[in-house]
Design a protein around this nucleic acid. Structure first.
Lengths: 183, 183
DNA sequence: GTGTATTTTCAAATATTATTGAAAATACCA
DNA sequence: TGGTATTTTCAATAATATTTGAAAATACAC
C-alpha cells in the first residue's frame, strides 16, 4: 500500500481565501432572506469561518465596507450575543470573535428571536383576542375561534423554542432524540 | 345564580372591524421581520381572519392597496400554497381564501422555506466544503472543521423540519409529544 | 493636562425593495 | 366574431433600508 499521508490534497492560500469568500457570500445571502441585513450576516460568517478575533479594520478590509457600517453591524452582532469583544494586550484596537459552538449559536439566535419578535407578537395577539372575547354573535364567535387556533399554534412553537433553548445542552439531545424516533 | 346566557358581551360591527384591523397589522408586522413583505403578510392575515373568500377588489379596498400590488401579492401567496383561488358561480371575479388549518399553514410554510432557502444554501455549503476537502494544512483543517460543524447543524435542522413537515398530521403530534416530556 | 489612536454617531447619499397605474393580455359571454 | 369584465404585467415612482464619511466622542499613553 502507498503511504497514507502523502496523497493529501494541497490547498493554497488563495484557494482557502476563495472558499472563505464563497462561504461568506452564501451565509450573507441566507441572512438576507431571514430578516437580517446581508452585511451583518457576512461579518458573522467572516468571523466564524476565520475562527480568530479580527479588528474593525480587518473586517472593513475583507468585506470592503465603511468604518461606520462595520462599527454598527459589529455592535448589533454583539447585542445579539453571537459575537463578543476581545482585547489583545499590547494592542489598542478592539477585536471581535464569533461564537464557535454552532449549537450555542443556534440557541442564542432562537432565544433572541423569541424575545424580540415572537413574544411581542404574542402580546399583540392576546390584546386582539381581548377585544372580542366573550361575545356571542356568530361571526364574532368564528373570528375568536380562528384567533384562538392561531394563538395555540404560536404558543406551541414558542414552548418548543423555549424548550430547545433551555439551559445546558438539552436542545441538542432533544433534536437528536426527536430524529431518532421512527426514522 | 344569574342566567348564564344573558351577560354575554356585545361586540359591534365596528369593534369586530377594529379587532380585524389590529390583527392584520400585527401579522403584517411579524411577516416583515421574517423576510416576507408586509403587504403579503397583511393580505394573508385578512383572508385568514375573515375566513371567507374575498375577491381582488375587496382586498384592495380593505388594505388600500393598488390592483397591481394585490394581484402580485395574491399570486405569491398562491405560489406559497397558503392561499387558494376559488370560483363563485354566477360571478366572473376570482376569489381567494386562506388555508384555515393553522397546522397545515405552518407545515406549508416550513416546507416551502426548506425548499426555497435551506436546500439551496446547503448545496452552496457542500460546494464550499468541496473546495478544501482533504487538505492537511493546519489552517485548512480547522476551516474544514468549522464548515463541517455548521453543516451538521443545518442538516439536523433540515431533518427536523422535514420530519415536522412529513405527511399526515404527525408534525402536530410530534410537537405535542416533545412538549409533554419532562415539562 | 496634551496629543494620538480608536470608536461611535448620524445626516446625507446610495442602493434596494415595494407600490402604483395604466396598457396589454386574458377570459368569458352572446 | 366583437364587446366587456377581469387579471396580469412592468416601467416609472415612491418608500424603505443600507451605507458612507467625516465630525464628535471616547479611550489611553505620557
Amino acid at each position: 500500500m502507498a503511504s497514507v499521508g502523502s496523497n493529501r490534497k494541497v490547498v493554497s492560500k488563495q484557494e482557502l481565501e476563495a472558499a472563505r469568500a464563497r462561504f461568506v457570500a452564501a451565509w450573507g445571502q441566507m441572512g438576507a432572506t431571514w430578516g437580517i441585513s446581508r452585511t451583518m450576516a457576512e461579518i458573522h460568517a467572516l468571523l466564524y469561518i476565520r475562527g480568530e478575533p479580527l479588528n474593525t479594520d480587518e473586517v472593513m478590509e475583507e468585506l470592503s465596507i465603511s468604518r461606520g457600517n462595520a462599527s454598527m453591524s459589529l455592535r448589533s452582532l454583539v447585542e445579539w450575543g453571537i459575537v463578543s469583544r476581545v482585547h489583545k494586550r499590547g494592542d489598542r484596537k478592539e477585536y471581535f470573535q464569533a461564537e464557535q459552538d454552532v449549537w450555542v449559536l443556534c440557541r442564542t439566535i432562537i432565544r433572541e428571536r423569541l424575545r424580540r419578535e415572537i413574544h411581542p407578537m404574542m402580546a399583540s395577539l392576546y390584546e386582539v383576542r381581548d377585544m372580542t372575547q366573550g361575545a356571542g354573535e356568530q361571526d364574532v364567535t368564528e373570528h375568536n375561534k380562528r384567533l384562538d387556533e392561531l394563538l395555540e399554534l404560536v404558543q406551541t412553537l414558542d414552548r418548543l423554542g423555549e424548550r430547545f433553548v433551555g439551559s445546558d445542552g438539552r436542545g441538542l439531545r432533544l433534536a437528536a432524540s426527536v430524529l431518532s424516533k421512527v426514522p
